[in-house]
């Protein structure tokens, strides 16, 4: 499971019970009104909470990705509600949704679409594939071969596809939620680095705690396990999402924090434990993610905590360990954590 990060939010676990403080210090008026954004996020959390037990960090990261206009790769062992979470999240957004089950025999045209000949008009007509939706759930993404994976390069980054010389733009918002299982090796293909780099976050979905698992069992025992999708209501329309994203783009970032992000990502390129560091696209992802997260936390500016909280999710799939470190059992998260611990926080 994602590490819970200490936070200065009003309900911070470090504060004694009943000691919650307003999110804005008395007498300080923020520049932006984030009320609607926070209310929408809370409503989505409530809707998802009807079905999903726990996984608060997962939900926070998913909401951050929606606001930051980024794609998400969910990785976890089978049975930890990766697909269910993605489907439920799509349901809270009143926008077109499609699901693609990736299989070893899937072809690029099965994803993107294909041109069919119309004898009556004596011309080819493009039949859009399932990628033409606002939220696309790609289940078991690592089961399709590289040929099919590379079909996603253009659409994930440039938000359009090119078929027979014609470019077809995707409708906004466009969000890819992909799932993969890290354990199984048989019949799977490692995702190309170029494709991994196109995911804003890679979220490790872990096991629930014992208390959470008991709550899951209680819900199931009470009969709430048949059709959970029905219980979730849509909250945000496409226009709402666009409006919130526009607001997030105007979040304030102190110049020293930009340097901090650049140093953090740059450190991965010179780290002895890494064979491949993160690209400047990672810096952009970290910046955009931190802006969205700070808005979700009720601030109109970014703090180092926002950057640190997101750094593992942004970097873990963009860096490659050296074989020696991999053999020693070092994980990308360990390296990111070490970099964070050695980097001076701008203050």
């Amino acid at each position: 499971m994602e590490n819970e990060s200490p936070s200065l939010a009003p309900d911070s676990p470090q504060l004694p019970p009943g000691a919650s403080l307003p999110n804005v210090p008395a007498g300080f008026a923020p520049r932006a009104d984030l009320g609607k954004l926070q209310a929408s996020a809370d409503a989505i959390r409530r809707e998802l909470g009807k079905v999903i037990v726990g996984q608060q960090t997962l939900l926070d990261l998913l909401l951050t990705a929606i606001l930051a206009d980024g794609h998400v790769l969910l990785e976890g062992v089978p049975g930890v509600a990766k697909t269910l979470t993605a489907k439920l999240l799509a349901r809270t957004l009143a926008i077109p949704f499609s699901r693609i089950q990736f299989t070893p025999d899937l072809m690029p045209s099965d994803v993107l679409g294909t041109s069919v000949f119309r004898p009556n008009q004596a011309e080819f007509e493009f039949r859009p594939g399932p990628i033409f939706a606002s939220v696309v759930l790609i289940d078991e993404i690592n089961r399709a071969p590289a040929k099919t994976q590379s079909a996603l390069f253009e659409v994930m980054e440039e938000r359009h596809i090119t078929q027979d010389g014609t470019t077809y733009p995707m409708q906004e918002p466009f969000l890819v939620l992909a799932t993969q299982n890290p354990i199984e090796q048989e019949g799977t293909y490692r995702l190309p680095e170029a494709q991994l780099d196109r995911f804003l976050f890679k979220i490790n979905v872990g096991y629930p705690t014992t208390a959470e698992e008991v709550a899951i069992l209680q819900g199931h025992h009470a009969g709430f396990g048949g059709t959970p999708l029905e219980a979730v209501n849509p909250i945000l329309s496409a226009a709402d999402i666009q409006g919130l994203r526009q607001q997030v783009r105007h979040q304030h970032v102190e110049p020293k924090l930009l340097e901090y992000i650049a140093q953090l990502v740059g450190s991965t390129r010179a780290h002895k434990a890494l064979y491949l560091g993160a690209s400047p696209r990672a810096s952009l992802a970290l910046l955009n993610g931190a802006k969205a997260l700070s808005a979700l936390r009720g601030r109109d500016f970014v703090t180092p905590e926002d950057v640190q909280f997101l750094a593992p999710a942004v970097l873990r799939h963009r860096i490659l360990l050296t074989p020696e470190r991999e053999m020693e059992g070092v994980s990308p998260d360990d390296v990111v954590k070490q970099i964070i611990q050695q980097l001076e926080v701008p203050r």
């Binding site: 200065l8 470090q14 923020p30 520049r31």
Partner: peptide
């Protein structure tokens, strides 16, 4: 401490 830290963050990172 949180109150003081919050004021610092609004003044320093928020540049209010």
């Amino acid at each position: 401490f949180r109150a003081v830290a919050q004021q610092f963050e609004y003044a320093w990172y928020g540049e209010l």
